[in-house]
Design a protein around this nucleic acid. Structure first.
Lengths: 204, 204
DNA sequence: CTACTTTGCTTACGGTGTAAGCTTACGGCG
DNA sequence: CGCCGTAAGCTTACACCGTAAGCAAAGTAG
């Protein structure tokens, strides 16, 4: 977790910061990935950063703020550029797959998305490219939002089902290849059905 | 929480129980409904039942077991008899709506379903009637499970989006009628699209 | 140097889940 | 009746949590 070479703050005086908000968030996500959500205590997070727990409060209001920041971080990670040639239905499918990829890359963090809803602006930025494809096809913003958000909640719900475990399961719980295949084809079937359904309603 | 008139246990001797597992679960759900998930502490739950916190451990292994039991309780509540004349697509739509109704009846409990996945047998019992409609139409069990579970995760994901709030919101957060309408029509659109998509794939 | 500002640290408190062992209330049996 | 086994509930205690309050340190500006 090396600090950036030039860490002089913008503001005038004061002790130079040894901690960045981004450092904290990235470390928090790493802890969640390796040891799970419950392992992310303020003391643990501080220890990982070589700092006392209370020092974190200079940068984030409380533990919930840390978790919310992790959610935003994940949203940024899920952002994908879209091929400009895609139709809205292709873009929608791609969006769902990309969002899913990000969630599965951080299985222990997925329940966070359920508990700490994504900031609305962050969410819109994440879906922005797809929404544009709908607009380009002459569809209303309402229809676009309905379709994209429907896919988004499906992806999240599906990921929850995939990574979920009666909490108390032995730590990391590596997924078998068969299980992964099962969930993947279920996912594709559901996503395809939903996109096809919207296509039938909106017309291509 | 009056005890049932005849509360003699089945087993031989011993002090007669003053607490039932069902009492505990029902009270837990009531606390969650009124004061939220965080308010459900073992001490609080004991106090509501007129009992010391540690007494609960005679009936449920730990707090997570209480939460899991609440989830099962909700699943039982979501169970709906289906009209035998329904096609699989009608039954599927009805199932989604009924599941959604139950979730919205307990908004503060919805995140539980994300965190504590439903027991597999409980889930199958919940979906059993719908699965039968698929079988009656000659569809494979795999296809049936894919469709029903897809709807289920969509319903849960959607409910999470509806009831979710940056945790720290002022307690109960009553929903405006406009918001409820918005989510309802979004829900109908998404569910309809998904069911239509599966219908197109499976054939009616 | 002194004054100021910002960061990080120390200490402390109330609340949590729950492990260990004790007490209480019953039904059965001598 | 007295005693005993047994199951339910209670008391106490502990480690750990988030975080409020105030202090120490490390820079810049004058």
């Amino acid at each position: 977790m090396a600090t950036t070479p030039e860490r002089r703050r913008a503001g005038r005086g004061g002790r130079p910061p040894q901690l960045t908000r981004e450092d904290i968030v990235a470390t928090a996500l790493r802890v969640i990935d390796t040891d799970g959500l419950d392992a992310l205590t303020m003391r643990r997070l501080g220890a990982e950063l070589g700092v006392a727990a209370m020092s974190l409060y200079r940068h984030l209001a409380n533990r919930d703020a840390v978790l919310a920041a992790v959610v935003d971080h994940l949203a940024a990670e899920a952002f994908t550029e879209l091929d400009p040639g895609d139709s809205w239905s292709e873009a929608l499918t791609r969006f769902g797959a990309a969002y899913r990829r990000t969630l599965l890359a951080h299985p222990r963090a997925v329940p966070l998305l359920a508990t700490h809803p994504m900031d609305i602006d962050v969410g819109l930025r994440l879906m922005g490219g797809v929404l544009d494809r709908f607009a380009a096809a002459g569809l209303s913003r309402t229809d676009a939002l309905t379709a994209v958000q429907s896919v988004a909640v499906f992806v999240l719900g599906h990921a929850l089902a995939q990574v979920g475990a009666p909490p108390g399961s032995p730590a990391a719980r590596p997924e078998t290849a068969e299980a992964a295949d099962y969930y993947q084809s279920w996912f594709v079937a559901g996503l395809t059905a939903m996109v096809a359904g919207f296509a039938a309603r909106f017309g291509r």
